[in-house]
Amino acid sequence: MKGQRLLMTASAMVLATIAGAALADTAADVAPTAEPVADIVRAPDDLPRPLAARGPEHVVVNIETVEVTGQLADGATYRYWTYNEKVPGPLIRVRVGDTVEVNLSNDENSWFPHNIDLHAVTGPGGGGEMTMTQPGESNAFTFKALKPGLYVYHCATPMVADHIQSGMYGMILVEPEGGLPPVDREFYVMQGEIYTEQAFGTQGEHSTDYDKLLNETPEYYVFNGAAYGLKDKTLNAEVGETVRIYFGVGGPNKTSSFHVIGEIFDAVYPLGSLNSEVVTDAQTVTVAPGGATAVDLTLEVPGNYVLVDHVLSRVERGLAGILHVEGAEQPEIFGPAQRTLETADAR
């Protein structure tokens, strides 16, 4: 209920009319599960810091694929397939020119083989063929990061769409030689869908519905793996700070129209390209499945800002998060109208 109240108060004029009824219904219909389950939601501030100025290096990345029962929603669980037990997988951060060694191990308790295909790789399969790994085994490969950008990675084991919707996606940031313009805070957010036999809001263990997956009709839309996954794990910042959100879509099927209600993006790095000219003063940004972007914001006014896909019916199925900004009120920018005596007399 605490998280639901947070969402309800985050934008009274928007969520109260769009998602209020759905959230209230979920609270009434779903009881807590009997057993404790894993928290698979990666915190949005869980990412490496910007790299110091340096030349090319040999960078080692260790990733374990783990299948774990996690909390999908209040009272609902799902068997996730993960990289390092969180959704999304870790943000990998390297510099253009680095040689990257990827070591992939598959937990011995896994039911299925897994691998990793990184869109930053130049080479057949993006590393997928070299890392096809059975439970209890490991594989490795190296690649040279030739081009800067923000790239998605995901499992490419058949059925690929099933492995992705179960949580096997993340991003790799290849910084340009000079790095990126500095900001005060950075965040890591990914959108996905989950296709379950059980209807949205049903309690208990959920299982995959392959007809829904193939027909692209998900029951749940998620930020960082779970319905309303960023309602408690908020993005936290202060008035006057600049923030950058690394945003990607794991999918596997749906395009996002990413929007932060009550904010305007100062800069958008289109298609995850870090060497292209940025787009300034943008309201939304379109991100395709398997695609990414980075957006910069300057925070002028305190309060709760709601992260959404502007296909707003998806809020009803779990797709909303909070950017919480603390600081002094700024009435010269935003506040109640100060009606003058002349205005009152005119009425």
Rank of each mutant, 00 (worst) to 15 (best):
R54D: 13
R54C: 02
R54V: 00
R54P: 08
R54L: 05
G55M: 01
G55H: 14
P56H: 06
E57W: 01
E57A: 12
H58A: 08
V60E: 07
V60Q: 08
V60T: 14
V60Y: 06
V61C: 05
V61E: 11
I63A: 04
E64I: 12
E64G: 03
E64F: 06
E64A: 10
T65R: 05
V66M: 15
V66D: 07
E67G: 07
V68D: 08
G70C: 08
G70I: 09
Q71R: 15
Q71S: 13
L72S: 14
L72R: 02
L72T: 00
A73E: 01
G75V: 07
G75T: 11
G75Q: 10
G75F: 06
A76P: 11
A76C: 15
A76M: 02
T77Q: 05
T77P: 06
Y78W: 08
Y78K: 04
R79L: 01
Y80K: 03
Y80P: 14
W81S: 14
W81C: 14
W81H: 13
T82K: 12
T82W: 05
T82E: 03
T82F: 00
Y83G: 03
E85T: 13
E85Y: 15
E85W: 12
K86Y: 02
V87L: 09
G89Y: 13
G89F: 11
P90S: 10
P90Y: 01
L91V: 02
L91Q: 00
L91F: 00
R93C: 02
V94R: 04
V94A: 05
V94Y: 11
V94P: 11
R95I: 03
V96H: 00
V96K: 01
G97H: 07
T99N: 13
T99F: 14
E101P: 12
E101Q: 09
V102T: 06
V102Y: 06
V102G: 11
V102I: 15
N103R: 07
N103A: 00
L104Y: 05
L104P: 03
L104Q: 06
L104T: 03
N106Y: 13
N106H: 11
D107A: 11
D107G: 13
E108T: 08
E108P: 06
E108Q: 12
E108I: 15
N109M: 04
S110F: 03
S110K: 02
W111M: 10
W111I: 11
W111D: 08
W111L: 10
W111V: 11
P113I: 08
P113M: 09
P113D: 04
P113T: 14
N115A: 02
I116T: 09
H119Q: 13
H119R: 05
H119M: 14
H119Y: 09
A120H: 04
A120F: 00
A120P: 02
V121Q: 11
V121T: 10
G125E: 08
G125H: 01
G126Y: 07
